[in-house]
Nucleic acid binder design. Structure first.
Lengths: 253, 253
DNA sequence: GGCCCCGTTCGGAAGTCGCGAACGCGACTC
DNA sequence: GAGTCGCGTTCGCGACTTCCGAACGGGGCC
């Protein structure tokens, strides 16, 4: 983690080119060169090289990101033990409840949505597989934070801070720690309007052999989830699902 | 397209490192070095650099691909006009028919599955968003080949050949061209057992303003799809869906 | 305690990358 | 239709980076 040897400039730049291509949704060498403030011959070599890797496509002089990212990303997801153990159960819960069900893992101190399954009345809030959010802004993230080793939790909070996404986001360390303790005791977490106004979530950790693997959650409109009876029903089903997942993960295929 | 200037060695190698990390599902510098036949100090610099980009994660000396691939891939998909115009309709068709519904685009002469929606009785054949297949082995691919400019179609066939995936795969140019002509006339394509034994597909192109955007298809067990009445029913629904998608794409959000 | 293997760091030498200038092409202007 | 502009692409030389072997420090296993 120390900065003993500097990273490779050309590789870093290659990924900057990818970023630029993403931002402008495809461009020629000239535009990339302008945006990166390099000669266009330089931009050209990078583009040609990236094309060779297959992650960039050249369509008549216009270079753009290829779907190889999608391919690699999906393969990673489908190889994940957690996903494999969960997929069927997530789908079943989504069918049963009609809500959006999500599977989340922690990576680099942030929450990555590994998979979502939508039910027939689930929200369309732009939640997608691969989406990255801060951990402290939603129930699944809090479930993870609560069950991570304490020092890791602190490190994450210190590194990433407590960004405010809505006016109900927890942005105070004390409040968060208090909440995490409750989450730890109850075994599940809840939030509403903390990430997106109008969206609520129940989340619980997936723990196999005392090791935190991720979390699963049910996403609802705040209105629905505020009903205590419904909330309890969802929680019970969620925990049932997580039990199945845990077993499948532990002994599974 | 010519090989005037050689590609950048370090960038190419960086992506080779990514490939290796994928293959071995995470490794340290030593293992990467062995596999790539370079000194481990070299492997180390690459790994450190890739870590900096966020596409690789270092977990206590073990480097592995991060979920950033999934994130980038999903963002690409969700930004695609075709996907945005299609998503709701695909889901609806999957619900209605209970079958697997897929959305496919051509990239670099191959078929990329942009999205799949599964119904309640759909096959579990390892079809996933991001999956890449040869175009000539399935109905959606053939629908695309049939509606691409003729020279492009020939170029693709010449470049990629006609790989055999099952004993019913079309591997003969003449046969394929004849079939493509029929597909062009009928406006839809069919296959069974050409890609995977037991799997059948009806596919039709998505064409907006005379421009081929991709194809959509319904995937069934061969048994079910061989029933002509059912096949006709699916086809009708598929074409209805594609009409909606076309309109949404043309005038949509 | 000693061994081995790993991830990591370092500094010099070889070689690649970076750059400016120039080419060929198409679109658009006059 | 000639001229101009802007684009993607190519080329070759100088300078900076990558590359490498050797060495360091730490962890696990005998």
């Amino acid at each position: 983690m120390t900065d003993g040897t500097p990273p490779m400039k050309s590789v870093i730049r290659a990924f900057e080119v990818l970023d630029v291509l993403w931002e402008v949704n495809g461009a020629g060498p000239s535009e990339v060169a302008t945006r990166m403030d390099v000669p266009k011959s330089t931009a050209h070599v990078y583009l040609r090289t990236l094309e060779e890797t297959g992650y960039v496509i050249n369509e008549g002089g216009e270079y753009r990101l290829s779907h190889r990212f999608l391919t690699t990303g999906s393969r990673l997801k489908h190889r994940s033990s957690l996903f494999r153990a969960s997929e069927a159960n997530l789908r079943e819960l989504a069918r049963e409840t009609g809500e959006l069900v999500s599977l989340v893992v922690e990576e680099a101190g942030r929450s990555v949505i590994l998979h979502v399954e939508s039910g027939n009345r689930s929200l369309e809030l732009g939640i997608y597989s691969g989406m990255v959010t801060p951990l402290h802004t939603n129930a699944t993230g809090k479930a993870i934070l609560a069950h991570l080793p304490a020092d890791r939790t602190d490190e994450i909070i210190d590194t990433h801070g407590l960004e405010r996404l809505t006016d109900e986001t927890i942005t105070d360390k004390e409040t968060l720690h208090a909440e995490l303790e409750t989450v730890c005791e109850c075994g599940y977490a809840v939030d509403w309007n903390q990430q997106v106004k109008g969206m609520g979530l129940i989340g619980a950790p997936i723990i196999v052999d005392e090791q935190l693997k991720g979390a699963a959650g049910v996403v609802c409109p705040t209105g629905r989830i505020k009903d205590e009876t419904y909330q309890r029903e969802l929680l019970q089903k969620l925990e049932g699902m997580i039990d199945s997942i845990t077993i499948k993960y532990r002994y599974g295929t």
